[in-house]
Structures are given as structure tokens and as C-alpha cells.
Simulated assay, not measured.
Amino acid sequence: MPRLFFQRLALSAAVISSLCTGAAAAPCGSTSAGYDAWKQAFSREAAAAGVGQRGLSALSGARYASRTIAADRNQKSFKYSLQKFMQVRGANTIVAQGRKRKARDAGFYAALEKRYGVPAGVVIAIHGMETAFGHFMGDSNVVSAITTLAYDCRRSDFFTPHALAALQLVDRGVISSGSVGAKHGELGHTQFLPGNVLSYGVDGNGDGRLDLTNQADALTSTANFLASKGWKPGKGYQQGQPNFAVIKQWNAAGVYQKAIAIMAERIDR
């Protein structure tokens, strides 16, 4: 039976977020020059929020992630037309491979849908889009990437709770100071941000631990995320249908949302 992890920690995320909006919050910056000073101030915030020694040590060892900043400033693909976006992201390949995966692991996906109400095509489309079905889950240090984004003024308010969540994950052994993920600190097969790991992470293979680089854990967590955001079992998920609003919770880019819905429908046929 899948186990939901960190339910009490999910509650602490709201507390963490409130701590980060106070007058004593570490000052953001737009270049690497202030990052080390920011880390010192952020370390005090993290300790006050309950982060332990392992998490604080990971923060101390973090480095300013220049590649993360470059990627954050240069997200051109989300400006493409839907047709161009799907071509660039390999939609036909994702659909073809997704159908094979659904047929091969029919029992697993049927169990997911029975438990969470989310059709196989949606979970599979997300898996294919995010990491090409686990073939590339990132090459950036998670703690460095997420703390760099928390420091950077562009979206500091959004990423600060995720940075604190990453340090909590280090504390609890879910990730380490050396764990790698995507350039924005996302983890595993479907690229969960650290705060979402705390809130929606599920031990999908029943081994007693949460590991988003394990496919069963990642896909079960993805279905749990969508269900928790209000997925309505049996209802449609294309534009204008009830569950499209839930797909929008997965990614803020309109072209990405539409692509997921279209590919999922093709996989589920």
C-alpha cells in the first residue's frame, strides 16, 4: 500500500513561507556577488524554521549556480506556438512510447487510476515530457540550484520555501548535499520541486522510503499531486473540461498544459 510521506512536514511549509516574508528575510540579489552573504542570513532563517545540522551543512556547501540563472533567463520554448512546442519536445515519440508503457504496465497504471482517479495517459505524458521517461533527470546540484533561485530577486518569494524544503529533505535523508536534479532544483522522474516532495511525496513501491528517482514513487507521487489539486475522476481534461484546471497546477506555461492534455488523450485512446 503506497504511503504518503511528510504530512506534518507539509504543514510546516506554510510556517516556513511566513518566516521568509518577514523583515529579517535574507536580502535577494541579481548577481553572484551577494550570494555568500545571503547564505549566512538564510542559514539563520533555516535554523529558526527547524532545519538541522545536515541541512545547514548542505547550505554551507552550496555554490552559486550560474547555469541555473542562465536557464531561468532563457526559457524560449514556452514562447513557441503549440505546434512548434510539441515538435521540439518530441510529442509523437512520447505518445508512441507512452502507449507501449501503458500496455506493458497496465496493472500499475490501472491501480493508480483506481486509487487517485487520474488516467494513465496524463501521468505518462507528464513522465515523458519532464524527463523522457527517466532518461535525463538533470545534472545540477539540487541544493545549489534551488538556493540560487531563492537568492535571485526574480522569483525569490516563490523559491524560498522550496529551498527550505530541500534542506529539510537533506535532514531526513531523502536527498543528500550532492543530489542532482534539473536546473531549477526539480527532482526525479517527473521533476518535483522540493516543497512538493514534502507535500505530495508517496512511497509507491512500498519499500518504506521516498525516492523520486524510483519510477513507482515518482509516478504515484504525480498522481497524488493531481488528485490533491482537485482531479475529478471520470471527467475530461482537455481545454474547457473540468480537469484541465488541475493540469494547469502542474506547470504555469499554457503551451505546456495544452501539450500534456493532447498527448495524454492520444496515449489513452
Rank of each mutant, 00 (worst) to 15 (best):
D105Q: 12
G90E: 03
A163G: 11
I146F: 00
R67D: 14
H162M: 02
R155S: 04
F159I: 05
K79Y: 04
G138S: 09
T148S: 01
A145S: 14
S156D: 13
K114E: 15
S140E: 15
A62L: 00
N141D: 09
R155T: 05
V170H: 04
F85R: 00
A150G: 02
I175L: 11
S176R: 10
R67L: 10
Y109D: 09
A65F: 00
I124S: 06
Q75A: 09
L169N: 03
F133D: 06
V142P: 00
Q87L: 10
Y109H: 02
F108M: 08
L149Q: 06
G107R: 06
A150L: 02
G128E: 14
R63S: 14
A166G: 05
V143I: 14
T148I: 00
A165H: 13
K102M: 14
F159S: 04
N92Q: 10
I94P: 02
A70V: 11
N141A: 11
V142T: 11
R172H: 15
Y151L: 01
M129N: 12
G181A: 14
T93C: 05
G128Q: 12
H127L: 15
T160D: 02
F108L: 09
A106S: 11
A166S: 10
D152M: 04
A65W: 00
A91P: 01
I175P: 02
R73S: 05
V88C: 03
K114G: 12
D152K: 02
V122K: 10
F159Q: 01
A165S: 15
R54Y: 07
G55S: 05
S57E: 13
F136Q: 08
G178W: 12
G98I: 14
S66D: 12
D152G: 07
N74M: 02
A166M: 06
G181Y: 15
A58Y: 04
Y116P: 01
A65N: 08
K100I: 13
G61F: 04
R154W: 12
M137N: 04
A70Y: 06
F133Y: 11
G107P: 03
V170T: 07
Y64C: 06
F159D: 03
T148Q: 00
L149K: 04
L56V: 13
H162W: 04
M137G: 03
K102C: 08
L59N: 05
Y151D: 10
D139E: 14
R115N: 10
G61C: 08
V88P: 04
N141F: 07
E130F: 11
A71W: 07
T147V: 05
K102S: 07
S57W: 08
K76F: 08
A120P: 03
G98E: 01
F85S: 03
Q97N: 09
E113P: 01
S179E: 07
Q97L: 14
